[in-house]
Amino acid sequence: MDLFLQLFFNGLTNGSYYALLGVGFGLIFATTKIVHFAYGPIFACAAYAAWWAASLGVPLPLAGVFAVAVAAVLGVASFLVIYRPIQVRGAPGLVALIASLGLFILLENLLGIVFGAGNKVIENVNYDVFFLGPVFFTSIHLWQIASLAILGGALFLFLRYTRFGKAIVAMTDNREMAEIIGIDTTRMAIAVFAIGSALSAVPAVLILLKDGATTHMGFQAVFMAFVTVVVGGIGSIRGAVVGGFALGLVQSLGLWKIPTEWQSSIAFVVLFLILVARPQGLFGASRL
């Protein structure tokens, strides 16, 4: 039972992490219809940016802000330099996806060249350790949950109540209609790439504090984001949250019965089964 509770809590924290990744990725995907695989390495770049800034002696919160800025700039740049020219040519959506895979390889290996191999950790991070009955956790775990609540909630309010946010939702619904009623879809696309990428920087920094950063961390991140979005349904923050928790819990509780070395396979098997059974995701597309 103790093990179960601990696994359950781990599932919740991992679920928050996946959900936040899914919210950012899903926002980009639903609005622009681009499968932005390079979301992964941009996430990794954010973690490295924070590590680099911190290693120069920048205080941690500032390093986090720097990471957010780096991610946002890279996200917008990838849209302007790569995706937009492809979309302007009227190429099918899969072309953007493949280009995204190319960008993925490019960024991941550039990171390797610039920073070298190996795990980058921030030394001397102070965090509190808590015991709640049999369950062990740290303040970083709490931050993972809090960041989802704060940022997910803020994004929800932004999309629901601001003029700009409503325009983004309109574009998610029907791009052509949005254009007809005078929404500048390019500007919206730039905005969602900035917001989505910035969102990914927060879990990136938290993972850096928790486990450290590696050049390969992006693949797992973007894949989990994708699974989350697929499980939860595209174009829905609520869906991404549900999907993220479902994924985190399944993966974590799976350890109860399944040997550890298979843990990373669980998510993929789940994804595979869900897509095969329900090609449109568990909940389909719903608003917000």
């Binding site: 790569i82 493949i98 280009a99 895979l101 190319g102 390889i105 490019l106 960024l107 290996n109 060249i113």
Partner: peptide, 11 residues
């Protein structure tokens, strides 16, 4: 570097 080149060529 080889992989970076791959990525560049593809994009």
């Amino acid at each position: 570097s080889r992989l970076v080149l791959y990525g560049l060529v593809m994009v």
